[in-house]
C-alpha cells in the first residue's frame, strides 16, 4: 500500500492550537491546488487494566492503545508502545476485549477532517478531539504518496514535498509548524514495505507527542 507520513502541528512556545489555525491550514491545502474529496476519521482509544486489588503491585502495562483507521475499516490495531508491539486484528477483537473484562477502554480521541487530492499525493488534514467534547487537542496531517510503498525510496520526494508545504504554510505566519517524527518501525518488527500497521504506529507516536506537549504546557503554567 502507498506509504504515508503522519505530521502533527507543533505550536510555538506559549501558544496553543485553535480552530483558526485548522481553518488556515485547510485553506492552505486548497491554495496549492488540493482538491477536497471527502471526510475521514480515525479513532484512538486508551485501554487500562482492571485490577481486582489495587493495593497489590502488578507489572501489567499501565495502558495501551486501540486504533481504528479509515484505510482499513474492518481492522483494529493494538499498540503497546513500551514493548514496541503492534497487532493487527479484525474489528471483532474489540468485542473479545470487552468479554475478557481484563482491560477497559477509558478515553477515546477522534482524528477527523477532510481529505484532499493533489497530483500523486493524498492529504488528510484533521483535528484531534476527545470523543465526547469539541475541545481541540491537536491538528494532524497525513501526507500519502500514492505511487510508492517503500519508506526508503520515498524519503527524498516526501522531504521535498514537505519543504514546499512548509513554505506555503509559513506565508500565513501561523504560530507553529508541522513536525514529522518517524518512529523506528524496525523495533516493531515492521519492514520497509509500508502497511497499515505503520500508520497505527505513527498515530501512537503522534499521541505520545500530544501528551508530552500538553504536559509541557501544564508545567510551564505551574
Amino acid at each position: 500500500m502507498p506509504l504515508k507520513w503522519v505530521l502533527q502541528w507543533q505550536p510555538n512556545a506559549g501558544t496553543t492550537v485553535n480552530s483558526q489555525i485548522l481553518n488556515e491550514v485547510s485553506q492552505c491545502v486548497e491554495t496549492i491546488n488540493g482538491v477536497k474529496e471527502g471526510r475521514w476519521k480515525a479513532t484512538l482509544t486508551f485501554y487500562k487494566p482492571m485490577i481486582r486489588e489495587q493495593a497489590v503491585p502488578t507489572d501489567y502495562p499501565r495502558d495501551f492503545l486501540g486504533i481504528s483507521l479509515p484505510e482499513q475499516p474492518n481492522k483494529y490495531y493494538f499498540i503497546i508502545r513500551g514493548q514496541r508491539i503492534v497487532l493487527e486484528a479484525d474489528s471483532s477483537i474489540q468485542t473479545i476485549m470487552e468479554k475478557l473484562q481484563s482491560y477497559k477502554s477509558r478515553v477515546a480521541l477522534i482524528f477527523e477532517g477532510f481529505q484532499y487530492q493533489l497530483g500523486d499525493f493524498q492529504l488528510r488534514v484533521g483535528k484531534v478531539v476527545p470523543s465526547h467534547s469539541e475541545n481541540l487537542r491537536g491538528i494532524v496531517m497525513e501526507v500519502e504518496y500514492l505511487p510508492i510503498s517503500s519508506l526508503d525510496k520515498s524519503r527524498q520526494i516526501m522531504e521535498e514535498f514537505l519543504d514546499i508545504w512548509q513554505e506555503a504554510v509559513s506565508k500565513r505566519s501561523l504560530p507553529g509548524h508541522f513536525t514529522h517524527i518517524e518512529p523506528n518501525f524496525a523495533e516493531y518488527g515492521l519492514s520497509d514495505h509500508y502497511s497499515s500497521q505503520h500508520t497505527a504506529v505513527q498515530y501512537a507516536t503522534v499521541m505520545a507527542q500530544l501528551i508530552a506537549s500538553v504536559q509541557t504546557v501544564q508545567s510551564v503554567r505551574n
Binding site: V86, L87, E88, A89, D90, S92, G189
Partner: peptide
C-alpha cells in the same frame, strides 16, 4: 467471538 490477528498475538 473470533478475530483473525497478526502472528505476534
Amino acid at each position: 467471538v473470533e478475530s483473525k490477528v497478526s502472528k505476534n498475538a
